[in-house]
Simulated assay, not measured.
Amino acid sequence: MKLPIHERFYTFQGEGSHAGRAAFFIRCFGCPVHCPWCDSAGTWHPDYIPEQIARLEVEALADEAAHTKAEFVVVTGGEPAIHDLAPLCDALHARKLPVHLETSGAFPIRGDFDWITLSPKRWKLPLAENLQKASEFKLIIDRTDALEEYREVIRDASTGTSDQRSVWLHPEWSQHGNAELLSHITEWIKAHGAPFRAGWQMHKNYAADLNDPRSAPPAPLGGDSQKGY
C-alpha cells in the first residue's frame, strides 16, 4: 500500500507528554480542515503544494523509520486520518516501533495507535468517538476566547473523561510573542490546574526538524484568514 507523503524526517518530539524524545515523523499529504494559521500549509494550500507529491510504500516508510534510533514514530499531517493508516501501523509495529498519531479528530481513525494526540479545530469539530480515544489533548490558542471554546468541546463531547488526560495549551505560533495571549494561558493554568498544562513547540526553538534534509521547507500561514478557510 502507498500513502501520499509530504515529508518524513528524524528529529525529537517537541510537544506534549513525549516532548524531548527521539521521534521519526511521517507527515501525510492532504487536509480538508484548512486552519488559517496552519504551519504545514504545504500539505494542502494551493500556494504551497509542491509540484510533485511522493506516494510511498508503507513498508519502505517503516524500514526508513527503523533505520534510525527513534523511540517512536509520529504520523501527522495535514490531517492524517483522511487516509487508511492501518497498514502503516502494522508495518511499524512489525518493526517494534510504537506509533503515535496527531489528528484533529474530525475523521474516523483507522489503525492501531499507541498514543493519540487530539487537537480540535473549530472549522471541523472532532467526532465523539475520537475524543474518547485521545491520550492527550492539544488546544491551539489563537485568541483569548479560544480556550473556553475548546474546553466546552472536550468536556461535552467526551462525557466528562477529559479530566483524566493532559490538556496542553499552545499559543498559535504566530502569536507566541503575544504577551496578552501568553498571560491568559498562564492565568488559566494558575486558576484551574490539572489537567491543563502550558504547551510550547520546543522543536521550533531548536530548528530541530530542519536538521534532516528530508524535511520540507516550512510554510506557515501565520493567522492570515485570506489563506485559510
Rank of each mutant, 00 (worst) to 15 (best):
H45S: 08
V58W: 00
E71Q: 15
L210I: 12
C38D: 02
G160A: 10
A65I: 04
R27Y: 08
A94E: 07
W188L: 00
Q132L: 15
A219F: 00
R8F: 12
M1Y: 05
E129Y: 03
S166H: 13
A191E: 15
Y229S: 08
S183G: 15
S166I: 14
F72I: 14
I189Q: 03
P108G: 05
G78R: 06
P98N: 01
D39M: 06
G77S: 07
I109Y: 01
G223S: 06
V73H: 09
I140H: 02
I53V: 14
D63P: 11
E136K: 08
Q132D: 15
L118Q: 12
E59N: 14
R55E: 13
A91V: 01
A198Q: 11
N178V: 05
I5H: 10
V153F: 10
N178Y: 07
F107A: 14
D224R: 10
A60E: 11
D212K: 13
I5G: 10
H184C: 15
A106L: 06
V73P: 05
H45I: 07
F107L: 13
G77C: 11
L125R: 11
G77L: 10
W115I: 01
S225G: 06
K227E: 03
A157H: 14
D84M: 01
W168R: 05
G177H: 15
P213K: 03
H100I: 02
K69V: 14
S17I: 07
A91R: 01
W37M: 03
D224W: 04
G199S: 04
R155M: 08
I49N: 01
Y229I: 03
N205K: 08
C31N: 03
A70M: 09
A157F: 14
R27F: 10
P220T: 10
R155P: 02
A219P: 00
Q226N: 15
D163F: 13
R214I: 01
H6P: 07
L118K: 11
G111A: 03
L210A: 14
F113L: 04
I109E: 02
A198C: 11
E148S: 15
P46I: 00
A208K: 07
K96N: 04
T68W: 12
M1P: 06
H67S: 13
E7Y: 08
D63N: 12
Y229K: 06
V73Q: 12
T68N: 11
G20D: 05
E152L: 15
D163C: 12
P98M: 08
M1L: 04
P36W: 10
E57R: 05
G30S: 04
L125K: 11
A94G: 13
Y206A: 09
F137E: 11
G223C: 09
G20W: 06
P50K: 01
G20Y: 05
Y10N: 00
Y206P: 10
A54R: 12
N205A: 09
L85H: 04
E180D: 09
F29D: 04
G78C: 04
P87Q: 02
L85D: 02
Q52W: 05
G160S: 10
P120Q: 08
G42R: 08
L61V: 07
G30A: 02
A66P: 02
A128G: 11
Y48D: 11
K138T: 08
T159I: 13
L92Q: 05
Q52H: 04
K204A: 06
A216R: 14
A60H: 08
H34C: 09
L125A: 07
A62H: 01
S104G: 13
E51Q: 03
C89V: 04
G193R: 12
Y229R: 10
H34A: 12
